[in-house]
């Protein structure tokens, strides 16, 4: 019984239009491709089963976003703790007098070409994966997904000051890692 309404939420449409969103969100939150596939699969199966209960489409993206975030968090809680590479404390890059240790050099200027823009996106995604879990989650929810700190605090069961401090630390780590990348590329 196929209806012809163009805007009806069908499994095909959910797959085509929303699967990449779910997958990328999960991958960034979990820092790992195969965990992201598990979460994407679970979330989309759940969604497709509930499709007929979804009349008003306006609320769908928000609802899907929340379901994905919760599924990713639940997945991380139940999986074994990952071996995490050690990430240096960004504030160790200052000496006892509070001066920068070593040079702070500008990054190569942002090229306009789309090819390089996509290369840059890939680099950012790779760098996010190197962040320790507790920093990456906050960073992804705040700076990529643009959730307000109060909502992140609620999701992660943290205080707002703790969210702010982790977010700041995560950005400093991102800055360090990217600088490191550009320095290495130059040499």
């Amino acid at each position: 019984m196929a209806t012809t309404a163009d805007l009806e939420l069908t499994p095909d449409r959910v797959f085509r239009e929303y699967a990449p969103r779910v997958y990328n969100l999960a991958r960034r939150m979990l820092g790992n491709d195969s965990d992201a596939e598990d979460v994407t699969q679970d979330v989309l199966l759940q969604v497709v089963r509930k499709l007929d209960t979804f009349r008003g489409e306006a609320a769908f993206p928000t609802w899907l976003h929340r379901v994905t975030v919760n599924a990713a968090l639940a997945h991380r809680r139940k999986r074994a703790r990952r071996e995490e590479g050690r990430v240096a404390d960004p504030l160790d890059n200052f000496d006892n007098d509070g001066h920068h240790v070593g040079h702070v050099r500008p990054w190569p200027s942002n090229p306009e070409s789309n090819v390089l823009a996509s290369e840059q996106a890939e680099l950012i995604d790779k760098t996010i994966q190197t962040l320790p879990d507790i920093y990456r989650e906050v960073f992804v929810l705040a700076d990529i997904e643009q959730l307000p700190n109060s909502e992140i605090a609620e999701l992660l069961e943290l205080s707002v000051p703790a969210v702010k401090s982790r977010l700041h630390r995560a950005r400093l780590m991102m800055r360090d890692a990217l600088s490191h990348h550009f320095e290495e590329r130059k040499s």
Partner: peptide, 12 residues
């Protein structure tokens, strides 16, 4: 720049 770039990070 970290903040700005991540705001418009495309989905792969």
């Amino acid at each position: 720049e970290v903040i700005i770039t991540c705001r418009k990070l495309p989905d792969a």
